[in-house]
């Protein structure tokens, strides 16, 4: 059953993949996790297109690759079900509704932007979005900073961002380089090689990856 679905370019699947992700798209509000729960319900439980283990692989890959968890998950599931075309179909399916919604929202705002109340409302939304970013940042602090090196790296990166015009590409390249060097040095000295925090079982929401949409 599963191998039949995996056989690659099964064209009959494409409309079904598209519709499934079209439906999942609008639910991606509120962070990657809201969407992962929806994907699990729609793809694993309702349609039986993937099993729990593949879902775990999907979460790891979607969180590690650049880009949002939603689009990455769609690409993973789409690829598994229908090859490269399946991946494209799923991504278009998940991206279309959100692009349409944000455009509609923006056009509506433009039509009323001269209204002082609308402008004030958007300032409130701005503050709320800042709060959502802060919350994501705080969750990342708790899940990714756990030893001296990670704290120091985060502080150094934050300092460079705040006080120098350094482009963030250097941080994105430099962080992994430091990670590799530190792990190599620790291996040579036969030190503890922990690269992820110890998970506390009473806090299921702090699982890695703590990436947001």
């Amino acid at each position: 059953m599963k191998s039949a679905l995996r056989s690659g370019t099964n064209l009959d699947m494409l409309p079904r993949i598209f519709m499934a992700f079209l439906k999942i798209g609008p639910s991606t509000f509120g962070g990657g996790y809201a969407m992962l729960a929806t994907i699990e319900r729609e793809i694993v439980e309702r349609r039986g297109w993937m099993d729990k283990e593949e879902m775990g692989d999907m979460v790891s890959i979607a969180g590690s690759a650049p880009g949002g968890v939603a689009v990455n998950s769609a690409a993973f599931v789409g690829y598994r079900l229908g090859g490269a075309i399946g991946a494209l179909t799923a991504v278009v399916g998940i991206a279309l509704p959100t692009a349409a919604i944000v455009l509609l929202l923006s056009l509506t705002y433009s039509a009323f932007r001269d209204n002082a109340k609308v402008e004030a409302a958007l300032k409130g939304v701005h503050a709320a979005v800042v709060a959502l970013i802060l919350l994501a940042g705080w969750k990342m602090v708790r899940s990714s900073l756990f030893d001296t090196v990670t704290y120091a790296l985060c502080a150094a990166a934050l300092g460079l961002l705040l006080f120098t015009p350094l482009h963030s590409i250097w941080l994105i390249a430099g962080g992994p380089a430091v990670g590799m060097i530190v792990v190599a040095i620790r291996r040579m000295n036969k030190l503890d090689l922990r690269t992820e925090p110890v998970r506390r079982s009473d806090e299921p929401e702090t699982m890695l990856p703590e990436y947001y949409i």
Binding site: G137, S144, L153, P176, G179
Partner: peptide, 24 residues
């Protein structure tokens, strides 16, 4: 790959915290 992400995650954390400040 684990070593790469060991170094990358703290940087991503900084980027997100900075985004809150910069965007805010």
């Amino acid at each position: 790959v684990r070593a790469l992400f060991y170094g990358l995650r703290p940087v991503v954390t900084a980027l997100i915290l900075y985004a809150a400040f910069h965007f805010g």
